[in-house]
Amino acid sequence: MSSDTNRWEIGSLRLAPARRRADTRMRLIFSAAAVATLAISILIIYTLVKDAWGFFIDVPKGDLWNIGWFPRRGIFDIKTLILGTLMVTGIAMLIAVPLGLGVAIYLSEFAAPRVRRVLKPIIEVLAGIPSVVLGYFAISFINPNIITALVGGSNKAFNVAAAGVAVGILTIPIIASVSEDALRAVPMALREASYGLGARRVSTTFRVVFPAAISGIVAALILGISRAIGETMVVAIAAGAVGGGLFSTDPFQPGQTMTAAMAALGFGSDQVAGSGLAFQSLFFIGFLLFVITLVLNMIGDRLVRKVREEY
């Protein structure tokens, strides 16, 4: 910068062109990467809508409301899949809501900091278990040891209930961590005010902290439901009905969810050719699934942010 005569000019302070160019170039690269994420969403919506619409136009409407889901025979009973998804999600929530909330409330309001530091990573391990492993756990442990004991052997080897319990185990960490965050976001002043009035810890937890965190807890439940609806491999392994399934309301029989039906359309012996109604039905269910989870996630997300803004 300084010349050999050690004379400084205004021009010496100007940014060297090479540095300026590098700065602009990196800025462009970063914004391109950011825009690429928008492209992913647009591509997902485009591919789903295009073939889902094609399927909806072409399919004989009577086949959408029939005895069961048998795509390769041209029977696309959508209520079989929706009921299957609802049953799995419902059973999952029966497991995950009490356990997840119990863990969250205990860790946030009762556990000593030292205990919390040890236990929280262990719960995080639960979140990292691959879903295929839980699928195997469902057929090798949950079904023979728990479901059979519960209903006395009237359950099939592959059934909706076992899959639902395993999906519930998968959702415990989500519900626990989102609602724990919500509970911990409640300011200490609220608890201290309650203690100052002479309330005990239980009253403070359930009458003050819990109501104050309620939108975050609802968000946790919604995100948990969304996760359960989107879970594929547990159901594909443990719920049976791989090729197709009859409409059934019995959770101890094989069943099919939207996600597992999509997986079944894509692999192995049930793999369908690259065209035709059965293949297009993949996109139709995918579109339904995408819309349902998107709506749930947006509601959950909004509630989570509301908690952050409140405190």
Partner: peptide
């Protein structure tokens, strides 16, 4: 983009299979 990324994080994995 932020909203979009958060929503992408919640898309079921099987939908990425379709993509």
């Amino acid at each position: 983009i932020r909203i979009n990324v958060r929503n992408l994080a919640g898309v079921p994995s099987i939908v990425y299979g379709i993509l």
